[in-house]
Nucleic acid binder design. Structure first.
Lengths: 239, 239
DNA sequence: AAGTGGTCTAGACCACATC
DNA sequence: ATGTGGTCTAGACCACTTG
């Protein structure tokens, strides 16, 4: 497992040495760790090297440093753990399954006040509305109901979304400054239920996503998933 | 907004200079950025300083470096965005609402084969089973159904969970090596529905969580939420 | 006064890509 | 041969905290 013939960099040796002490529980939370100068002596390296090791471990959340005082094992940051939300086509392909899409709608629309406020635009702005079913092995797994501001993302309405998902097109076009996600469990409406081939008494996992580019809302999407066929999962490991 | 009197470190000046070019779209994805030596001349600093700036931007996902070739603006990593799952009590308190808990069960149990496999233990191991309702302003918002291996986390069965949540106790006791989350939308069973005061035709947001300590499964939990009163949200901003 | 972290320099050697 | 990134050294100055 750890037979590097290639010679491990010195700063990494030091990082792993410290991580080992923390993982084993030998150095508990809030305990002091050796100073840069102590590590300089112990490992016979320069201070820049020990500084890099300790600085990177601090950036990664393992240590806390206080100038003039010392370096300490960080409190456990267990209150928040990341869950990743992937692009649906990539996710399906990563399971080595066949991805396909059915475009139900892709047209310009006028917006009402509620949507205008949600997207932070005037009511006279024209948006493109797309409605797409994403399928895994031919089975519906996501209904994507999306609004796009073409003032921010040009050419959206002219794409062939059976070839490339809207999300893939958007991130190529727009720098993508900020993304907001909300995950909910709901009961599907009649049309959502039939479009996704859902059974009676089946819940729906809904992801609402809003993306910003250059300070403006580029797009909003509602992603509906059959509860029996879709779930979000995430594995969080420090390092 | 940007009136530092304290003198910004040189490596940060360089980082911000590059980030500005990327954010503005001036330096598009896959474009080459100046080499370390070019930045050394431009900013009149040593190479260690430009190296740190470029290395940190690389660690943060903005740049890609290839030894012997150059440094480039990274492809947008938009395929995965983090969604954070918080400890329920902290979450409620952060909304300045009153948190309370009702402990329905907290007792030792024998496990069946399915659970033993899921927790990677022998069937003769005794677990502690706790069932707790977490409330916001007195209204049920989470039903926590948890199994804990006391060989890994000692003293679990003796805690008062109206004062401190199981999750808070667990992370204090165990180093918390790895966390797995699965988020689902389901229809609640009759008892879940009544314990959470849910209406008919209301979906249930379920989070299944498994935590590891020192290579062993310390605890598994099913967290049930009323779909009308709970949602997960996350805002992702680079930087 | 002594120790700590935070930053920075002006060199250096290496492996690797490109021309 | 030249340029690139990856690493490392042996100093240095500073602001800060502690005794």
């Amino acid at each position: 497992m750890k037979t590097e013939l290639k010679a491990e960099p010195l700063y990494l040796k030091i990082k792993n040495h410290i991580l080992g002490r923390i993982d084993s529980g030998e150095w508990m939370t809030t305990m002091r760790v050796p100073s840069e100068n102590q590590l300089v002596k112990e490992f016979s390296v320069s201070r820049m090297t020990t500084n890099r090791a300790l600085r990177e471990l601090t950036d990664e959340g393992y240590l806390v440093r206080v100038a003039g005082v010392g370096t300490f094992v960080a409190e456990l940051k267990a209150q928040s753990n990341p869950l990743e939300i992937h692009n649906i086509a990539d996710e399906i392909r990563s399971r080595h399954h066949v991805y396909s899409a059915e475009v139900l709608k892709c047209e310009a629309i006028k917006v009402n006040d509620k949507i205008a406020a949600y997207m932070n635009i005037d009511t006279d702005v024209t948006l493109v509305h797309s409605l797409i079913i994403h399928k895994e092995q031919g089975i519906p797994i996501q209904l994507e109901d999306r609004l796009v501001n073409e003032d921010v993302v040009s050419g959206y309405g002219d794409q062939d979304f059976t070839k490339k998902t809207p999300y893939e097109y958007l991130i190529k076009q727009a720098p993508l400054q900020k993304v907001e996600h909300v995950v909910k469990a709901i009961m599907p409406t009649g049309s959502t239920k039939s479009l996704l081939d859902m059974s009676d008494q089946e819940a729906c996992l809904l992801i609402e996503r809003r993306t910003w580019t250059k300070g403006r809302v580029a797009s909003t999407a509602k992603l509906y998933h059959p509860g029996s066929r879709y779930e979000l999962s995430g594995l969080f490991k420090p390092e």
